[in-house]
């Protein structure tokens, strides 16, 4: 039972961060129809910018987070303008490959400035742990769940209440109709990329505190695929449900099947879902069938 508690909590906190990364992914897919393979590298950039601001330049952690978010917005807007805009109307393979090329550039950039060795962990979440029914529960994990929940709620409100959020949903629904009522589709695309980068950076900062800063963080980006396919590629609530399910499943398989299985069970689930219900739990059933 103790182990079960422990695994559940670790699964929930990983799932919360996964949901953040997946949220950025879904934002981009919903608004622009692009599958972003560089999402994991946005996490990486967030973690390294946070590390650099806090431990290299010695900023307070709150300023470091702001620095991370500023870099994320700039990065998102630049990427949209110079890499993705020329690709509008191209084949799926070209769009996928351009984001893969982008991820290579971002990963190489991090390696260029920071080298390959893992960095000291910038700690800002509360230290210490809570004993609950025999399980040791670090406060940092609880804090990560709370922060992720707050950010996810904020985004849900943004989509339902704010003008910009509603404009983004309109563009996702029908680009031409949005243009005719005066929504700037270009601005919405830029906004989608900027927001996606911001969510990824927040996820990256949380991961930096929980697991340390190293190039391995980018691997987290691959686990986003099972999450978004399970939840539905174009569904915001789907990212939360998908993130939590995949996070828990990975921890349980590591705990009860054997260490290492957490890397593979999500992908087996991914294939199973693609074969049975490719649009996921909450996605729109718009997938082309052959």
């Amino acid at each position: 039972m103790t182990e079960f508690f422990q695994l559940t909590l670790f699964g929930l906190s990983n799932g919360a961060i996964l949901a953040l990364a997946a949220l950025g992914f879904v934002l981009i897919y919903k608004a622009t129809g692009v599958i972003n393979f560089a999402q994991g590298h946005f996490l990486l950039i967030g973690a390294y910018v946070f590390y650099a601001a806090m431990l290299v330049f010695g900023f307070h952690w709150s300023l470091a987070i702001l620095a991370g978010i500023a870099v994320a917005i700039a990065l998102g807007v630049l990427v949209e303008r110079f890499v993705l805009r020329p690709m509008i109307g191209e084949d799926a393979i070209a769009v996928i490959m351009v984001t893969i090329g982008l991820s290579s550039m971002l990963g190489g950039g991090v390696q260029f400035f920071f080298g390959t060795s893992p960095k000291e962990t910038p700690k800002f979440l509360p230290a210490g742990s809570l004993d609950l029914a025999g399980a040791t529960i670090p406060y940092s994990r609880l804090a990560a769940i709370v922060i992720a929940a707050v950010v996810l709620t904020a985004f849900t409100l943004f989509f339902t209440r704010s003008r910009h959020g509603i404009a983004m949903r309109a563009v996702a629904d029908d680009q031409q109709a949005s243009l005719t009522i005066g929504i700037s589709v270009r601005k919405v695309f830029a906004l989608a990329w900027a927001l996606a980068a911001v969510t990824a950076v927040i996820g990256g900062i949380l991961l930096a505190d929980l697991t340390g800063v190293s190039a391995n963080l980018a691997g987290f980006g691959l686990v986003v695929f099972p999450v978004v396919i399970l939840g539905g590629l174009d569904s915001v609530p789907g990212t939360i449900v998908g993130g939590v399910i995949i996070g828990l499943l990975a921890q349980y398989s590591a705990g009860y099947i054997g260490s290492g299985f957490e890397q593979i069970v999500p992908f087996i689930v991914l294939i199973a879902i693609l074969m049975v219900r490719p649009y996921g739990l909450f996605g729109q059933t718009r997938i082309e069938r052959v």
Binding site: G260, L270, I271
Partner: peptide, 21 residues
């Protein structure tokens, strides 16, 4: 046989991970 484009790319990504695992 059932998937195209983006979805197939993600499915083959999973194949890659499964084979290497």
């Amino acid at each position: 046989l059932r998937l195209k484009g983006l979805y197939l790319a993600i499915a083959t990504l999973a194949s890659q991970e499964i084979i290497l695992f």
